[in-house]
């Protein structure tokens, strides 16, 4: 699904190398988790893959289903099936959540040369999906993320994911700022989207989230590289021993 080879990335504004040769191969239908200490480059990886400005790719490639995405605009990547659930979803006053969702769904369809979703069909689909995430009609009407609690914001991210039906989902610290109940609800939403084609890359600091979203593969990232790859047991190891041992191992 997503193949990242030797990805080197620096900040555009300053001479600071963040990613120093990341290699990742994510197969269809699998859930990969990336864990790592602060400043290891996890969030940068998610931003570079989804097309945020301010970064310069100095080497390497990233391909989504065999197509290079690094030269594409953010919206083109989205239309190609990439989705990033933000660590800090942005508030957009004055734009209704529903309007925003419909704009996004139809913009992607248009970019793909597909027919737009009718208002009626859209309403039906969004209501059903919102219900599963315990998002009520009021929340759909409110401006995007304005006055939402941390949990509501993250649920709203998952609702967008459910509506946009991406092939490749990147979740950037989706567990941050969530209490246990909210985390369960979000995890349920993610698990409901799992199938044998859709791929997930779950970025997290803590093993906690991975109790609810069971990964197939766990990667440890440090200092701009993937330093270790293993099964779910690797996450438990980190939980028990911290990153220090792993960092020493590879130093």
């Amino acid at each position: 699904m997503l193949n990242i080879k030797n990805l080197h990335v620096k900040l555009e504004e300053e001479d600071k190398q963040i990613l120093k040769g990341v290699n990742l191969s994510l197969e269809p239908g699998k859930v990969h988790a990336i864990m790592g200490p602060n400043g290891s480059g996890k969030s940068t990886l998610s931003y570079v893959l989804s097309g945020k400005g301010g970064y310069e790719v100095t080497d390497g490639t990233a391909q989504l289903e065999g197509v290079d995405i690094l030269d594409m605009e953010a919206e083109e990547r989205a239309a190609a099936g990439l989705f990033l659930a933000f660590q800090y979803p942005v508030e957009i006053p004055g734009v209704g959540n529903m309007t925003f969702l419909r704009t996004a769904v139809n913009a992607q369809r248009k970019l793909r040369g597909e027919e737009e979703m009718s208002a009626g069909e859209f309403l039906k689909v969004v209501r059903a999906k919102a219900k599963d995430l315990k998002i009520d009609a009021e929340m759909l009407k409110r401006p995007v993320n304005v006055g939402f609690s941390g949990g509501e914001k993250k649920r709203n991210e998952i609702l967008q994911m459910a509506m946009l039906e991406p092939k490749m989902c990147i979740l950037d610290e989706t567990d941050s700022g969530l209490d246990v109940d909210a985390m369960k609800l979000v995890a349920q939403g993610v698990n409901a989207l799992r199938d044998d084609k859709r791929t997930f890359l779950v970025i997290t600091h803590y093993q906690r989230l991975l109790d609810h979203i069971k990964p197939d593969v766990v990667h440890i990232m440090a200092n701009g590289r993937i330093i270790k790859t293993g099964g779910p047991e690797l996450a438990l190891e980190v939980e028990n021993n911290g990153y220090a041992d792993l960092l020493e191992e590879t130093a």
Partner: peptide, 10 residues
């Protein structure tokens, strides 16, 4: 970026 990442052209 948030809007564009959802597929909305610039």
């Amino acid at each position: 970026f948030y809007l564009r990442s959802r597929g909305v052209p610039e």
